[in-house]
Design a protein around this nucleic acid. Structure first.
Lengths: 204, 204
DNA sequence: CCGCTCGTGTCACTCGGTGTCAAGATGCTG
DNA sequence: CAGCATCTTGACACCGAGTGACACGAGCGG
């Protein structure tokens, strides 16, 4: 009994170590700055060895950036559920609102992580890599949704790029304003700008 | 007095070493792959020490990615010269055509470098960082051009982002097609898609 | 000719990241 | 419970990127 938290004992231990590691990392990185913290420090703080750190995370950036892991899949999944007859701008706006709503949810923690990422070149680079991956995913999903050939038609990659540009601008704005503005409202205004291109170009 | 190539003797020597380094790097990286080449190899091949390599380039990525250095400034400069009454879509299309034309110019070398960058994750990340910088530059230039406050108005960052999305899509398409398609034609078609958003949103 | 600066090579070092191995904990089976 | 397979961990060695310090030699002005 006592299966309060799902999984075997080993799995729960593993989860515990992972939490300890991310907690130690976030605390140290936020206070001392990304470059001033060594992996040895993080590992020691969490009570494990440096080698073990790399059994949980692929790199120092990874500890922070892992929070973004599911976002790409989330965006694509939401887009897949939207009705095919829906206007691209509407469907894409809802799709990209998913991770934004998640941010607005646990605003305190999310804001700290986002500000750390956007303020650290090395982390920013990783973030951009993730975005590039999301863009490829979105492109594929859009092409399928509209029955276009992504190798021929320029619309899918452009629409995906514009959508993520909106997402990125909103996130930066939200971060710069210390979370004072509502992401949902910002994304609505952003889509007022890019919407025309998204919709008028469909029947090319 | 043999001032054939501008600069003092020391400056010309420095330029010579830089050329030797980039040449050796490009040759080795293109054939053996990015990760399989050490900086020691590159330096030795160029006839200098590893330490000297770092007196010319900040990192291994830097040797390749330096080709992109001037592009951001080029885009912004071209935008600055366009008449203020010109439609944003027209001005931005011309601005972003500058580096594209440069690629189409020395197509052989440019294509090899671009394909190396787009095909290597580490280089791709650096490329994205450069793009982010360009986007900030473009945002500032656009805001000034239109008399908008970039801290308040969402249009400048969105327009800059859309423009660079078009640039990026075209470059990837050009690279994927081994330079078989005309960048100018591709960028024209890309701006047919994003143009509406660029222009209709100006008077918000 | 002296001293100056500047570019370079050498050395030593830190840190990120990986391969390997031995030891311990866990979990399954009889 | 005994025994065996599996997984996790720590310790250690190792590689390559990147940096700091210093000594050496070439070019150049006095």
């Amino acid at each position: 009994m006592s299966t309060r938290t799902e999984g075997s004992l080993a799995q729960r231990k593993r989860q515990l170590v992972a939490n300890e590691l991310t907690e130690a990392a976030l605390q140290l990185l936020a206070t001392k700055g990304f470059d001033a913290v060594t992996i040895d420090e993080i590992a020691t703080e969490a009570g494990v060895s440096k080698r073990t750190f790399f059994r949980y995370f692929a790199s120092k950036e990874d500890v922070v950036v892992q929070f973004l892991a599911g976002m790409g899949a989330g965006i694509r999944a939401e887009l897949a559920t939207r009705a095919a007859r829906e206007l691209p701008s509407t469907a894409l706006r809802h799709a990209v609102s998913v991770p934004l709503a998640e941010c607005a949810g646990h605003a305190d923690r999310a804001l700290r992580v986002v500000q750390l990422i956007l303020g650290t070149p090395a982390l920013n680079a990783r973030f951009l890599e993730h975005q590039a991956q999301w863009r490829d995913d979105l492109t594929a999903e859009l092409a399928q949704r509209l029955g276009l050939d992504p190798a021929t038609d320029l619309y899918p990659p452009l629409a995906a790029g514009m959508t993520l540009t909106a997402f990125d601008s909103v996130l930066r704005r939200w971060s710069a304003g210390d979370g004072g503005e509502d992401p949902a409202e910002l994304i609505r205004r952003a889509f007022e700008v890019i919407g025309p291109a998204l919709d008028t170009a469909v029947r090319r």
